[in-house]
Amino acid sequence: MSKYYVNKFLFTVDRDPEYLKRYTEDPRNFVATWEQSIGPRLNDAEMSTVHSFTEAEREALINHDYVALFEMGAHFFLNLTIFIGIYDAPYMEKHGPLAFQKEFAAKLQHWAGKEYPSVAT
């Protein structure tokens, strides 16, 4: 498991409008591309050989499954902001302000009152 690498995915995609568009429209292909050529990038010249996704992490990212990502200990801020970027506008149009954020919270209700999975990396 690599919480760090999941966070790196969320971090690199949320901050880049082109990546975010591709992750929104075709998550399966984009996750494959990310693993091949974006995730390993350390800087413009260097590649890292250190991290990779587990099958569960890969599937959670492909499925925009923020509940699974929360449960794996993905950082709460990254896990929220990227999916707001994808879902806030369409939910707002259909159901009004904060509809997506409230659904996100509702799907995590089974964690209310419990200690959350650690986000430490």
């Binding site: 709460f76 801020f77 896990n79 954020q101 409230k102 919270a105 509702a106 089974h110 964690w111």
Partner: peptide, 9 residues
């Protein structure tokens, strides 16, 4: 709370 069950109450 951000990204958890108690957000946006």
């Amino acid at each position: 709370e951000l990204g958890g069950p108690r957000q946006f109450m």
